[in-house]
Amino acid sequence: GVAKAIINLAVDGKAQNRSYERLSLLVDTVGPRLSGSRDLEKAIQIMYRSLLEDGLQHVHLEPVRVPHWERGEESLIMLEPRIHTMAVMGLGSSIGTPPNGITAPVLVVNSFEDLHKKALEALGKIVVYNQPFVSYQDTVKYRTRGAVQAAEVGAVAALVRSVTPLSIYSPHTGMQEYQENVPKIPAACITVEDAEMMARMASEGHQIIVHLKMGARNLPEADSFNTVAEIVGWKYPDEVVLVSGHLDSWDVGQGAMDDGAGAVISWEALSLIKDLGLRPKRTLRLVLWTAEEQGGIGSLQYFLLHKKNISKYSLVMESDLGTFLPIALQFTGSEEAKAIMKNIMCLLQPLNTTQLLDGGEGTDINYWIQAGVPGASLLDDLSKYFTFHHSQGDTMSVLNPKEMNVAAALWAVVAYVVADLEEMLPRD
């Protein structure tokens, strides 16, 4: 059968390790790909040429205006109670400090509630958040909202403990947001180790003074592109199964895991199908999003441009949680669609991954899912994901070619079968 042929080609056949090799070629050559950077545009051009060379159809770029934030030089030094140079990483969209930096005493808090209790002490201080890691979703609010909450009580900067379950003195960056009518203060992340140490120092009654310097700048929006390629359906060419990952990353590590690998297994899904000479009934469309990390900027542009055809989208798929050994496919859709997807997952028995779970989502496909289109995301072994996420550790060394083979095979079988069914997935 078709499913077995796809799996064999990806896992044991000529295509084994191809997605890993394609990814290493991209990220070793270009490195990280921050929104607005020349590196991201270079990556988009490389991918555009590669998709053409791969023989995919309708390869094209769709223009998007994207945020352009630059990190600049950064440093953080503890002056009291002892001299200690700390690892620091500015958060996306943060303003910089004045050229000479900010020297201020520290107020350590462990939650927003704790900050509000200590609000009267915050004026003129640098707030250090030492929030425990509960889960990414629960804890990331300290990164996104930490600066606003600190500024509201008069702080001059915010330092947020990195949102990670495990640290080997690694700062983890990510997006933060300002709020209208609240002063903008510099926001950066620090390591778990330094956040915990400052919490201990503060609880022992030491006064902590630090010097923070950040050269971050918010520049005018830049030109970028969503990268698109297709295998055009032979029977219902105007109907679409969308397969995707995002090509941009933060400016640290190589952006290999987040989300170069997701982008590459999505490409691989189309390559596997094409290599087998298969052509589904409806169109398989690969979209490599730009500026996901800045809040799904490229995917919003795509949604606004294409939503008029929303009734023609059978399924939207995004891989943005790593490409480690797959555990399940997460799916959001009607009960009828779920029953169909459960049947499709049975085809993945040779991969030993037949679970269909609720909660299919992704920053770039959520616009479609919220509008009623069935959506699917790859769930893999997440034990390592948030340890490397948005850090210098996000490199090829995290990835395993054999696990990527399995992820690509799963992705290709699901995309192909849904695209080849006689009918689109039913909606509520």
Binding site: G1, V2, A3, K4, I310, S311, E336, A339, I340, N343, I344, C346, L347, A371, G372, V413, V417, D420, L421, E422, E423, M424, P426, R427
Partner: peptide, 24 residues
């Protein structure tokens, strides 16, 4: 949001299951 084509679907879930099984 609605897909008109499906609302007049000719296929039952059982028929869909048979169709999917053919990809094994």
């Amino acid at each position: 949001k609605a897909i008109r084509r499906y609302s007049s679907s000719r296929k039952t879930i059982q028929e869909m299951e048979e169709e999917i099984a053919s990809y094994r």
